[in-house]
Design a protein around this nucleic acid. Sequence first.
DNA 1: AGTTTTACCGTAACCTCGTTACGTAACCTA
DNA 2: TAGGTTACGTAACGAGGTTACGGTAAAACT
Lengths: 195, 195
Amino acid sequence: MPRVKQRTEALRERALTGALAILATEGAAGLTTRAVAGRAGASVPAVYEVFGDKAGIVREIFFAGFRQLEDELTALPAADDALAGLRGLAEGFRQFVLRNPMLAEVMFARPFADFDPMPDEAGAKVRTIFTQHVRDAVDARRLRGDPADIALVFRTLVEGLAMAEATQRLGGSRQSVDRRFRLGVNTLLKGFARA
Amino acid sequence: MPRVKQRTEALRERALTGALAILATEGAAGLTTRAVAGRAGASVPAVYEVFGDKAGIVREIFFAGFRQLEDELTALPAADDALAGLRGLAEGFRQFVLRNPMLAEVMFARPFADFDPMPDEAGAKVRTIFTQHVRDAVDARRLRGDPADIALVFRTLVEGLAMAEATQRLGGSRQSVDRRFRLGVNTLLKGFARA
DNA sequence: AGTTTTACCGTAACCTCGTTACGTAACCTA
DNA sequence: TAGGTTACGTAACGAGGTTACGGTAAAACT
């Protein structure tokens, strides 16, 4: 048998960690295959063997981002009120985007021309979390309508507002941004509220 | 005096038209400086002289897109009811995105790592259109609140829903997509409605 | 008309990055 | 210790953004 393999799952994980660090510090433009390889102490072909191609790296970043988001949203303190729970969900989503702007850009904008996550498998669990919270609110008779529809609209608004805030498009002062974010969330929930 | 200039404003316009065509047919990946030059019957340095760099091309596409969107939203038939006007605005925005998916991607996602339109000058007029419609609704006592805030939230939701629809993330059947889009718009307006 | 000047133009190159062919070397076995 | 098998990294290729540079057309002057 030949020499021992170095292009293993361990390298894959190390390279992914490095790729996330590069993305956070250098931005999408700095995320090159050579940079990922160098940071992982590996050769470029090694990175290609573990990830397939560059889109594979982006895909893993994408999945890692949704796993982290899912963890953070799951770890949110439970609210006694279903509507408060939805507001907390929105705020948790917002904080994730603000703390990980580059990662959020990869997840919710598409800075890389290749790689569309058509079968939106990555975000499925996050979507489930939103739907479950909405379902709770519907069951508690605080909201009215189809939970899947409501959750989709709610998540779309929250994502849009959070991304707008992260890219400085939501206003100037901290207070006006806060106000607008909460206004959007509260108003939509009010519209969905049971008469 | 030397020979007559060819790298003029006329070339700039011709190249921009070609760039928009390339974007619409080949997508963001096909939009290379060489392709733009070739389509305009010009050399690559000629394109650089008129646009500065590739970000300059993207920037012009960006502006052209917002001009077109502005024109379409301005040309929308006037509604007798202020709320119907806002619904029509949302539908007009939606149709623009559906008819120009690649252009919308450049305008509202960020497929190009360089070039952030930080001073969102391009979208200023579109934003004004939204704000004016909201102001009309507030003046007509159909909505309550600060028009700028309402318009920002409203546009964020409409943009998010339209982009989600364009990227097949809003559902499967035409009917469910239609239903969700209208649900989102109507519910938010309901939330903003005067008691 | 011929020459000179001027500045405009496109060819061809440079650099980075995604991607991969290929020669080299490590490890096991006999 | 020789051979075979296979993993590894160097170095190259092609595409795309960007630009140096020399050729050349047109005006101006004699």
